[in-house]
């Protein structure tokens, strides 16, 4: 809908990479899981999506990634998207590098190696997925997402199943990768610190609507001990209905 000739478009206003307008979704006759939702994500912007369980975060992501249909409202999204889920969803019968290049038959192994190097998994290029640790499997899933050079990357609780230490490493990795590739990112997370470490903006979803938006104007790399970080953390927790 907004793909109209970029040559004539006013240079001052850049188009958002992703735009959602009046999106509603219900399953059967149940209540609306998404309710007249509006959301824009700028080119290269990192947005964290928070909200309690069942608030519709995954449903929004599934709709944006084309897994669920748009029944009411509009979305516009780049063609080049990638999704990383909580589970790595690697094919167990393909080696790591074949998983990374899955569906792109002309991709040489060297290109897979290059991306695997970026996520720190080059030494496991010929491993079978079932022999990977949880963190390694998520790195492979990240590599599979990155090799497609997405303009829009969606992450649905990608580190929720990892131990605390591995999660910290993965957060660093995602931060570094995003700064290098500068694609628009939508990260679903339950971890307030993760949102504050990584995102430009935190969005809180409640009952299918955006309840609060919080810009995070902190320079990177960010530190938990930063007083602004601490203050933002309290605000965000309050929006989530948690009082410290």
């Amino acid at each position: 809908m907004n793909q109209i000739s970029p040559l004539i478009a006013a240079p001052a206003v850049t188009q958002p990479a992703v735009s959602v307008r009046g999106l509603s979704r219900r399953f059967g006759n149940g209540p609306r899981v998404l309710n007249q939702l509006n959301l824009d994500i700028a080119q290269g912007e990192f947005v964290a999506l928070l909200g309690r369980s069942g608030s519709g975060k995954s449903t929004l992501l599934r709709t944006l990634s084309g897994l669920d249909p748009v029944t009411e409202g509009h979305i516009s999204c780049p063609q080049e998207i990638s999704v990383v889920f909580q589970e790595s969803r690697l094919l167990p019968w393909k080696k790591v590098w074949q998983n990374v290049t899955l569906g792109r038959n002309d991709t040489p192994r060297d290109q897979a190696r290059h991306v695997l190097e970026e996520v720190g998994l080059a030494h496991r290029i010929d491993a079978w997925p079932l022999t990977l640790s949880g963190g390694e499997a998520q790195r492979a899933a990240l590599a599979r997402a990155l090799i497609r050079e997405p303009k829009f990357l969606m992450l649905d609780e990608p580190f929720a199943a990892l131990d605390a230490l591995t999660r910290l490493r993965m957060q660093d990795l995602v931060s570094a990768l995003w700064q290098r590739h500068k694609s628009a990112v939508l990260l679903v997370t339950h971890d307030v610190d993760e949102a504050l470490l990584l995102a430009d903006r935190a969005v809180v979803l409640e009952a299918g609507r955006i309840r609060a938006e919080l810009p995070i104007p902190l320079p990177r790399p960010r530190r938990h001990a930063d007083p602004v970080f601490v203050r933002l953390r309290a605000t965000l927790l309050e929006h989530l209905g948690v009082h410290e």
Binding site: G66, F85, E87, L91, L102, G103, R144
Partner: peptide, 12 residues
Amino acid sequence: PKLLEMTRTLRL
């Protein structure tokens, strides 16, 4: 079905 979903997001 999760693997099949994944192949759909990869546009296989």
